[in-house]
Amino acid sequence: MNKRRHSTKWYFLQMGYYAFMILVAIIMAFPIYFALISSVKGNTEIFSNPFVPTVSPVFENYPRAIKTGHIDKSFFNTIYITLSAVLIAMLSGAMASYILAKFRFRGRAFIYVFVVAGMMIPIQTIIIPLAFYLGKLGLFDNHPALILLFTAFQIPMTVFVVTGFMKGFPHEIEEAAVIDGATHSRTLFMIIIPLSAPALVSASIFNFINIWNNLLFPLIFIRSAEKQMLALSLQSFFAERGSDYGGVMAAIVISITPTILAYVMMQERVEMGLMAGAVKG
């Protein structure tokens, strides 16, 4: 911040900072390294020599991973389902949050608690009732149904995070627009949603990861292999009397690549959103 000449102490602090951050980075990046080196090993080598790169890599793990786990198909299914659910949750969540944060009507507090309480639902418990219900409606093996199902369980958390954020907005930010004659939806989409970007993105990252890694819903509600999702594909390497760890690691490497790329890209968005947010002050 202050542009003075740097003292020796400053250099030591700087070195300490980077030494510490690099150490943490190594610990955090370790699993990626582990997944990468394991993805070209056989089971015996993974277990006898887990942390050292192999001298005789078996690249066949990758084609086998794709074939065994049907990764090619499940990959696109997962992207389509996850993005749709994240978007619907973001949109419907933002609309509801705006109302819950700013509007005055009877029962507001109740509706807020009612929606946010959904965060506490342990999803294992509702599987049987849900299966009854969706089975009766003939909604097994149906992507749109699965998307709405995921959305339903991401709405509470989205509303919780976004409402809290919107409550901090002073009324003045809408006032000018309203006086100019903007409708409610115009105000929401042109002013409120852009200003809420940091909260919306934080919630969406959380939602994205939750859906991407969710096992139980696709397991129960998707029947055919060509409609299956990625997280379940990873399970296909664990068999009754032993597992294919090389295969599962190859599948993991394939499946986390887009998540990490998406995060790196989303991160840019967060920062843009933050800048937009900073203007308001």
Binding site: I127, I128, A131, F132, G135, L215, L216, L219, I220, R223, S224, L232, Q235, S236, F238, A239, E240
Partner: peptide
């Protein structure tokens, strides 16, 4: 023939118990 086999133990158990509970 619809083959809905699944090898991983917990997944198998979840699937089977849900099918039995819903009469499917």
């Amino acid at each position: 023939v619809n083959n809905i086999s699944i090898n991983e133990e917990a997944s198998y158990n979840n699937k089977f118990k849900t099918l039995v509970a819903t009469g499917d």
